[in-house]
Design a protein around this nucleic acid. Structure first.
Lengths: 163, 163
DNA sequence: TATTGTTATACTCTATAACTATA
DNA sequence: TATAGTTATAGAGTATAACAATA
């Protein structure tokens, strides 16, 4: 159980987290400025557009790391803004079926070009095709590894509290 | 001005953002569970430990992407918790000099092993030395590029509003 | 006047727990 | 009993604007 990361690992960890933080910050600014959307709200809309069909709240929660109540809250905001609709499922009355409205799809279409522009300017402008492939390979592997580990809810990291 | 990203770019962008989100989430859980610290609070303490000397609020704000008032708020929390001290600078009375306390250093020491463990388990476990080097090179380049672009505060992304 | 930092305030995000309704 | 989702509530984070003090 080594106590430190190797210098190369430190360098990589810091570069990764700082670069992604800056990217996230820029993307959030753009989404708010051009579409009055938080990133989570954009994600919800984008998932619905991508699915090309209505989804249940549970489906959506799987795509966004989120508590159910948080998702309910965001869905409420989006519904009030006229960007999605919610209705009870006809097959299982417990489920809520969420669909995107034309206004919701239009909102995504409004912000998407700017979103892409930010990602291109900040992330891809300095990367070669080989870099893109390599980065994609590495991060896909990391993502799959992380997904395979804990069921996301349990934080089994037990400890008697430091004091 | 192309309107879409290439499939390879999409794949890379999604893998990058999702993997880092999962990593950030896990790190935040660990810091809260083992040290009752938010990530920003941990960053502030870690910067002070690393600096090995007191820093001004402005110095700290440069290390953390943050509004001054947000930093003041967090510094107030850390001060109340006895993890840092604040006093007026003797050379320039406008400046506030922030120093870490023994308790603050101890708190960092408490959470650091778990932090490192999370990063190792989630990020580095699946990466070869070559992957680490490659990822570090790429993200360092991206980070430097992003830093060189906007002065961080101005969001010069002007537009006549979509509607 | 410009700079450093704080205060007051308000809003958003997020989660926990209790709850309803359906299966 | 278990599952899907909502509601109520509360706490944490963040930012803007006004402010005070110093340079």
């Amino acid at each position: 159980m080594a106590k430190a990361l190797k210098p190369q690992q430190m360098r990589t960890y810091f570069a990764l987290t700082e670069a992604v933080s800056l990217l996230q910050y820029a993307v959030q600014q753009q989404l708010r400025a051009e579409g009055d959307l938080s990133y989570v709200q954009f994600e919800i809309l984008a998932i619905l557009v991508d699915a090309k069909q209505p989804l249940t709240m549970t489906d959506l929660a799987d795509g966004v790391v989120y508590s159910r109540s948080g998702l309910t809250h965001q869905a409420g905001l989006l519904e009030r803004a006229g960007l999605i609709t919610r209705r009870a499922s006809s097959v299982d009355q417990r489920e809520t079926v969420v669909d995107i409205t034309p206004a919701g799809a239009a909102r995504v279409a409004t912000v998407l070009p700017g979103h892409i522009q930010v990602v291109r300017d900040l992330l891809f402008d300095t990367l070669s095709a080989e870099d893109v492939r390599s980065l994609g390979d590495i991060m896909s592997r990391v993502r799959d590894h992380m997904r395979s580990l804990p069921p996301r809810s349990a934080t089994p990291r037990r400890r008697p509290r430091p004091k």
